[in-house]
Amino acid sequence: MKRHLLSAADLSRDDAELVLSTAEEMRSLADRPIKKLPALRGRTVVNLFFEDSTRTRISFEAAAKRLSADVINFAAKGSSLSKGESLKDTALTLEAMGADAVVVRHGASGAPHRLAHSGWVRSNVVNAGDGTHEHPTQALLDAFTMTRHLGALDGRRIVIVGDVLHSRVARSNALLLHTLGAEVTLVAPPTLLPVGIENWPVETSYDLDSALPKADAVMMLRVQRERMHGGFFPTAREYSRRYGLDGRRMASLQDHTIVMHPGPMVRGMEITADVADSDRSVIVEQVTNGVAVRMAVLYLLLGGSEPAVGGEE
């Protein structure tokens, strides 16, 4: 039985399209005076965040509340987690409290998988970002944003630029966009591409200028300095000159091409302020779409007697 959303690879094409079409209906709720649906009344969603996060946690919280679920926020700071409690004991506590779904973000890759398959909890587990591994709901909201601007993604060229090595967003996007038929090119300095990238369903390039003119969407990634222990590039200035998106590079894009960023962005590093604030930028819209996509995921996992999407038990 499908119960969890741990990886973008869990989603078949039908699953992904169901999430996107459901999100389209959820999106129209944002224009209504009463932004509330009764689908998850009486269900409890726990946001279990071992890592700092603003937009993802708030987005999941808004999504659950708009579906009338009860939301419990569990942050590592200021809880027993900072006193040395293990993931297992935290999970058993949540189980005892009757959580129906656990939305988990953890610094260790694979933590949501452990939570889902250990037998500690009966809840549905949604991965909200684990280490440098995956962030499937971000990929879904990115795909949703792209389809709203570009239509079906079959044969569309998506260029993802920057710190792929530390990016769970890049991995989830590469998997999901491949499932949806898009052609993904990852552009990064050699030091910021992970080992084993040749097994991903993507093209890679070290040259941003040659990749941009054919792109239908360009996604800039943040350089994750907090995860860097060592010299991955000589200076920040050299990085932004070779891999940053500025006004000059933006001018080489096709007219319909959109510019995306999963946030938080560092203006002046991977993207300049004039690009981030330009008409092509859909960065703010990505946040709005995030709530709709997470509503769709929570509804499809929790709304019925059994989930309609997600990975195998």
Binding site: M26, G304, P307, A308
Partner: peptide, 21 residues
Amino acid sequence: DVTMYRDDLRLKPARALLHTE
């Protein structure tokens, strides 16, 4: 679309939403 307001929502697997306009 009335899917999410149905009283048997919990009795069947999660259903796809239909269009509301």
